[in-house]
Design a protein around this nucleic acid. Structure first.
Length: 559
RNA sequence: GCCCUCGUAGUUCAAUGGAUAGAAUACGAGCUUGCGGAGCUUGCGACAGGGGUUCGACUCCUCUCGAGGGCACCA
């Protein structure tokens, strides 16, 4: 049970008590939002419920807040957590953490080390995150890289929150694009892909003439020599590389279509078999078997999702897609529902979160959730570069990784929210790589390690704080508060997937450390203060490293 | 035409319907006989525009303008 949930329950109880005392009438208690004030002066946590209840009760908000505050103060043990609770204008209730509570937290961090921040939110639920899944017809692009950084980090966050996660790459090694790849290598009239890799493959297959056979073999080569190497360079490691072809080989696609037929979710028109997806909220029906007898991409994807839910028994599946696949979201959603896998997902306790979820139509509590990442625009020499493999003018992820480290690149991608269009100015990124915030964060980590070494602390040995109560300097307390935020950051992100919160937090934490470092000398003669500050440093190192680990970014002990 | 995602300091990005809209970078001014100055302190600087809902709007609704994406028997 974390503090925010505890506080929520306390508040609810306080309001009920006030109702039973007839100070408040018997209204239905609204959602209790636990706010985190931006200003420390406004407390560590805050409630705005006073204003909402004041409206219902037609009372003065500050009086309502005061009533709640007084009722909360009566709760046993709350004085151990908060040094004081305040009701302030226009009707907020502010909570200030006690020194005692903060001291306890630092001990918790030192005890739990890399496990600090592990939550039980997932309660062993199995979740798959599928990301990148680019066609094996060419090297990964910068846009794929964004999906990779996002998906990998989201999976890490969910793992931290207690979910059993698997990372998957769906290889589209079946279908027309394989044929097109073959023709591209043959450079005949049906060629679509171009670029250096095609030229290299052309040399390799110069003695062959069958487009499909070439395409099939080439796809395997591209997967091994390009895609897998690039994901490695990006520090992404999949649990499963799933081949679409195997679904056809094992007749899983046919079985899926048969299932839908039997359930009456299909019909024939113009010689094709249509899936009645409009019965499941889609704006139109979708073809699953074309009039020439071949299956569409959706048919294969549905078979794959049957595998996800029925064979692998995932409780939840999250697909990370580029925004160019927006048009396919409803089709797959409808299909998954038709296959009987909707709404198994838990209902979150937090009403304020479900409110957010409701806004995101693609995530309506389905067992399948699809996150769309907006486009990455690439600028080079001040000019936009059109991203298209087919045109052969795409910026390959490897081009970027030749110039920037994986750490910098991942951080650059992660910093932006999924639904903003990302401008990747290659020249700017190169130019700024030395002053990138990631260096600021890694420098903080290296600096801490250096002081700890100078202080004779073995980084791998357990270190217990003895004098946390000596941590009273403004910057010490501020840093402590930042450390404490880590669990909230994990929880929030595991629920709303706003992963840019993580790099944001890393910057804040590093800043809090640098400020502390500047004001407080650690290696002082006073044994007690020295001990206390070294403990704080060690705790900071732990949390900073945990944060970087989640982002898949290294935490160097020296730079 | 319809559907998505956007529009915030010069630039790249933040901000759960809450309190004084934050960072980074750039530009200006400071800080070192101390543990890593790749740091710290400080100044300048922004909600595309008009209506509306609300005690309270960058956030919700609506219109206008602007950017990107999607509307296949392609994947």
């Amino acid at each position: 049970m974390n503090l925010r949930n505890e506080l929520k329950i306390y508040t609810e109880k306080a309001i009920k008590n006030l109702q039973s005392k007839a100070i408040f009438s018997e209204f239905e208690i609204p959602n209790i939002q636990i706010l985190k004030p931006k200003e420390i002066a406004n407390g560590d946590y805050a409630l705005s419920i006073g204003m909402e209840i004041a409206k219902i009760e037609k009372e003065n908000p500050i009086e309502v807040a005061n009533n709640i505050k007084e009722e909360l103060e009566k709760i046993k043990g709350i004085d151990k957590i908060f040094s004081h609770i305040e009701a302030v204008n226009p009707g907020f209730v502010n909570f200030y953490l006690s020194q005692e509570f903060l001291d306890k937290q630092i001990k918790t961090i030192l005890r739990n080390k890399e496990k600090f921040g592990n939550l039980s939110l997932g309660r062993n639920k199995k979740v798959q995150v599928e990301f990148i899944s680019a066609n094996p017809t060419g090297p990964l692009t910068v846009g794929n890289g964004r999906g990779g950084a996002f998906g990998d980090t989201l999976a890490n966050v969910l793992a931290k929150a207690g979910y059993r996660i698997e990372k998957a790459y769906y290889i589209n090694d079946y279908g027309n694009q394989i044929n097109v790849l073959g023709h591209s290598i043959l450079k005949d009239a049906e060629a679509k892909y171009s670029g250096e890799y095609i030229d290299e493959l052309a040399i390799r297959f110069k003695d062959e003439t069958d487009a499909y056979s070439i395409g099939k073999k080439a796809a395997k080569i591209i997967l091994d020599n390009n895609i897998k190497k690039t994901t490695d360079r990006l520090n992404i490691h999949y649990d499963e590389w799933f081949s679409e072809r195997t679904l056809y080989e094992k007749k899983e696609v046919e079985k899926t279509i048969e299932y839908l037929k039997k359930k009456g979710h299909t019909y024939e028109k113009d010689g094709a078999i249509w899936f009645r997806s409009s019965s499941f909220g889609d704006e139109r029906d979708r073809v699953i078997v074309k009039s020439d007898g071949t299956k569409t991409y959706l048919a294969g994807d549905l078979a794959y999702h049957r595998y996800k839910f029925e064979t692998k028994k995932f409780d939840k599946v999250i697909n990370i897609w580029g925004a160019d696949h927006f048009g396919d979201v409803k089709g797959l959603m409808a299909g998954v529902e038709a296959l009987g896998h909707k709404g198994k997902w838990e209902n979150y306790l937090f009403a304020f979160i479900t409110k957010i979820l409701r806004k995101k139509w693609q995530r309506r509590g389905n067992s399948l959730e699809i996150v769309l990442l907006q486009f990455v625009s690439v600028l080079k020499d001040g000019k936009p570069v059109k991203m298209s493999k087919r045109l052969g003018t795409a910026i390959a992820m490897d081009d970027l990784l030749d110039e920037l480290s994986s750490d910098v690149t991942r951080f650059f991608f992660l910093q932006k929210s999924a639904n903003t269009h990302l401008n990747f100015d290659i020249d700017l990124a190169k130019e700024q790589s030395e002053k990138n915030p990631i260096f600021y964060i890694q420098y903080a980590h290296a600096r801490i390690c250096s002081v700890l070494r100078n202080g004779g602390i073995d980084l791998n040995k357990k270190k217990q704080i003895k004098n946390a109560q000596l941590l009273t300097h403004e910057k010490e307390i501020f840093l402590l508060r930042q450390l404490l935020k880590f669990e909230d950051v994990i929880e929030d992100t595991a629920i709303d997937y706003q992963i840019h919160r993580i790099p944001q937090y890393a910057i804040e934490l590093a800043a809090a450390f640098h400020q502390f470092y500047n004001d407080c000398h650690c290696l002082v003669d006073d044994e007690n203060i020295r001990e206390a500050r070294l403990s704080l440093l060690l705790a900071t190192k732990i949390v900073l490293k945990n944060t970087l680990d989640i982002m898949g970014i290294s935490a160097p002990e020296k730079m």
